[in-house]
Design a protein around this nucleic acid. Sequence first.
DNA 1: GACGCGCCTTTCCATCGTGGGAAGGTCAAG
DNA 2: CTTGACCTTCCCACGATGGAAAGGCGCGTC
Lengths: 147, 147
Amino acid sequence: MNIGHASRASGVSAKMIRYYEQVGLIRPAERSEANNYRSFDERNVNELRFIRRARSLGFSVDEITNLLSLWRDRARPSRDVKAIADQHVAELEGRIAEMQAMADTLRHLSGCCAGDDRPDCPILADLASGDPPAGRGRRAAARPFGG
Amino acid sequence: MNIGHASRASGVSAKMIRYYEQVGLIRPAERSEANNYRSFDERNVNELRFIRRARSLGFSVDEITNLLSLWRDRARPSRDVKAIADQHVAELEGRIAEMQAMADTLRHLSGCCAGDDRPDCPILADLASGDPPAGRGRRAAARPFGG
DNA sequence: GACGCGCCTTTCCATCGTGGGAAGGTCAAG
DNA sequence: CTTGACCTTCCCACGATGGAAAGGCGCGTC
């Protein structure tokens, strides 16, 4: 199975398959001797699907590395898997809370804004006040999404 | 006022001040002729505070470019400001919903996981099923946070 | 006058996962 | 033999931020 076929079978783009190999998330694929083309089997495709599902739940490549090795280890304690999942949930909740705080603040400001031809605008007034986010009981931290 | 002073006065790192100048978010600062040091005044510091506050509400540099020009335009219609804010709120809500869906799914799976020495684990079982996220009524898209 | 410290300057690199594109090899069908 | 579909590697870009290197300038101190 060539990379394009594996890509269609797994839903992971060929680009990403090569990337996952490069960063060590998956073992380097076998290569056809004539071609130097990568070749994949059903097991590889299952791994790719696992990765895709984990990515869709927001796990980072590092976390997936750990999840994959637990998956392969038939003697794993489910405790370890649960720990990774719970930690990820906590991260998600943290980011959600930050973004929720931003959205709440902005909804409030927008609700106070006439939104017509006139220039007066509580949104700009708030930004211009330049207060640090913690200053008025708002708790949104500076960097809510990954950067 | 040198960049370090402006940084402390505004809460924006010197690094970021140079970056904002580079990408055109702020006008290039005046330069001392001897030094070639940037020099800032209170107005610049106010702009930097505006930017910091906007960043803390999750606005992108592009959005802040627009907000700044509206801020400077005393004849702006508040409608335009509100539109930017509302659109940003919608983006935030979208991302929040995606992450909420991930967290919900993971909380459910984790709740079903014994989390002990035994290897059986519904979390891994779910990942191994490799279903596309839309397949079982879950709606989490693939890329919830900025990348 | 020499030295060190602190500040400034620019430039390059890394993050994280993903897509885009170039330049070139391989293969099967027409 | 050509065309087109596939594969390969390598480089670049994103966004906002921090880090580090290498060097210039100014002030205070010996």
